[in-house]
Nucleic acid binder design. Structure first.
Lengths: 216, 216
DNA sequence: TGATAATTTGACCGGTTGGTAAACATTACA
DNA sequence: TGTAATGTTTACCAACCGGTCAAATTATCA
């Protein structure tokens, strides 16, 4: 008798691992473009290059697929913030945080859009994740920023809104890519816009926080 | 014989005007939450308080409804940027642009999400609008900003990325509202976060552009 | 090899989808 | 008022949806 993914207790075979990867890759493609309700299992199966029943052999429901995907993406998505170091100096920490987020927008736009779609549609499936782990992490880093401000290393500001503004400005280049390209024109169809964006955002945030590049 | 909306040449009756308004209001609610493919005509009809065939009497297809909605929203969405005045001084112009965008995020979050959904899903229906009228308007305002920079009124910066960053930071409070609330906690469930955001963003952009509040 | 488990497929199911046809009800107006 | 245009509803359709099933195929390994 066939044992679908969820019922297994033993370790996964090579085929299982490969196929699940293949499916999640296709699911990322489709979910990130159409959202959960707008995506169809048939479409995901087609992109994954397999039949629908075959796909459903590995993930028993559309929702299970989406859940697996969201969990994985949310986790890696927070990595740049986790690296944010309390011991470092504000200039390099904020600068490299912006750079990392911008690199993710450039290299993993589908992951960003998947996440954006989920939030945009009310985050029905990850509200707990947001109020739990995400909030905890942001609270921790906000405290670091507040400490810097109190020590006079950066201008006094609301650390939460600072984080929001870094998120939004960087993710904009993934989520609103179509608009960005339309406005910039086709000359900028390469990756030049990411370098321009990095330059601008560094200027904006470092000056905006009165950081003068002086070694601390 | 009944003449649905698209075939009419005479002026609209009071009933038509009222019903179409009622439908677009419901469509805004549903499309902004689920995107085009995720929304269903039945659902829109239910929110609008009428039967599905009745709704389809005014808008013959789901797509026609969506098109009408997008066109209207896109137009009003650009109003704040249109008000951006070349003759004004940088401080008040940039500050009030941020304020207007933030007010729209607070007062018309559904419109913002509708637009975000559309862009996120590749803007299949409004690419021309983006490359045409939108680009033209942004080009014009970018030139204003560039003039200010050359006159030494603000720091030298890429005007396009400046506009992008104002868009993204302000719209973030509409599009990612669920996340913002989750991170800030329930204490901030009122409108306080918009005032905090306004204060932070003004600080960020005015300092970021080296604008020192001096009257020009 | 052969037998057993894992994988893949085509046919199919009940429910939902966007949209239609035509009968019925209401309004506008001569 | 009458009547023609406008507006609304019930019943319905074919296509598509997520998901199931049993049969067929392939991999595993004693």
């Amino acid at each position: 008798m066939a044992l679908p993914r969820a019922a297994r207790t033993q370790r996964r075979t090579r085929i299982q691992e490969a196929k699940e990867e293949q499916i999640l890759e296709a699911a990322l493609e489709v979910f990130s473009l159409h959202g959960f309700r707008g995506a169809t299992v048939d479409q995901i199966a087609e992109v994954a290059g397999m039949s629908k029943p075959n796909l459903l052999y590995y993930f028993r429901t559309k929702e299970a697929m989406h859940r697996a995907l969201i969990t994985r993406v949310l986790d890696t998505w927070l990595d740049p913030l986790r690296e944010f170091d309390a011991g470092g100096n504000p200039v390099s920490e904020i600068r490299s945080y912006i750079r990392r987020k911008l690199e993710m927008a450039r290299d993993f736009p589908r992951e960003s859009r998947l996440f954006a779609n989920e939030i945009l549609q009310g985050a029905p499936n990850i509200e707990d994740e947001l109020k739990g782990p995400l909030k905890a992490l942001v609270d921790e880093k906000a405290e670091v920023i507040r400490t810097w401000a109190k020590a006079g290393k950066i201008a006094k500001c609301d650390p939460y809104h600072l984080i929001f503004s870094i998120w939004s400005t960087t993710q904009h280049y993934a989520d609103f890519d179509v608009q960005v390209r339309a406005v910039l024109g086709q000359d900028q169809s390469g990756d030049g816009r990411f370098e321009d964006a990095a330059r601008f955002l560094e200027q904006l945030f470092l000056n905006g926080l009165h950081i003068n590049e002086q070694p601390t």
